[in-house]
Design a protein around this nucleic acid. Sequence first.
DNA 1: ACGCAGGCCTGGGCGC
DNA 2: TGCGCCCAGGCCTGCG
Length: 270
Amino acid sequence: MPELPEVETTLRGVSPHLVGRTIERVIVRDARLRWPVPQEVHRVAGHAVLSGSRRGKYLLFATAPGTLLLHLGMSGSLRVTDAATPFRTHDHVALELDSGLHVRLHDPRRFGAFLFVEGEAGAHPLLSELGPEPLGEAFTSAVLHARLKGRTAPIKQAVMDSHLVVGVGNIYACEALFMAGISPAREAGKVSRPRLEALVTAIKEVLAASIEMGGTTLRDFLRENGEPGYFKQTLRVYGREGLPCPACGAPVRRVVQGARSTFFCPRCQR
DNA sequence: ACGCAGGCCTGGGCGC
DNA sequence: TGCGCCCAGGCCTGCG
């Protein structure tokens, strides 16, 4: 369930099991992901995992021969299990570790990715064009303002464009626009500087708050059903069509933008 | 460069 | 119980 906070939670959950461990082998049960899992992934076998990191919603696990580059797509998750635990349906790839554990990629819809990158991973085409991290210092209203200049697309779609800023998915785009009081349909290039300031603040706040809640999942990460709806209750507009806006009581509306559902309050967001 | 549509997949929930 | 339909936390690719 990969919004950025989930990906971050996943990283924090698997890293202690992975970093410093040696990958004994890579088990590819089904190579048909977004792109076919390449043969090169087997090059990490026999090598230690040197580090785990995240760029946007991509996960990177470095070894001496190269870096494993993972994406969880819409339905992907990583689970740490004992190697003897039977595979579930849709457990497509597993890293078998010298600790006797498996890190398994589970992904019913197979929109995820499991790739191998030799050399500087940041130079990979999937990563090299990405925008700044939303929680980093490089993501400011000044930067956003400059990048949105002249763009006619709706602000909601712009903010979900990973080339402008990474990690803002459908839920948090809706939530942040609500918090900032900006209509999702507003032309991106015409949102005023002060309102962009509010939007940047809202994005940082909502992502940071959600990551903090992800910490609860972190503790239970090895558990079989580690998927509580812990931030569902904090959502103000997402998934709440027809329910009262928490600020003004007007019914929350749902529209479709770029084939994705957008939830917003027509009274609070202008 | 930008904006948009299409496409990739499976599964759950709903109405009939 | 079964079937068809709609919907789902993403994002790349190709076209105009």
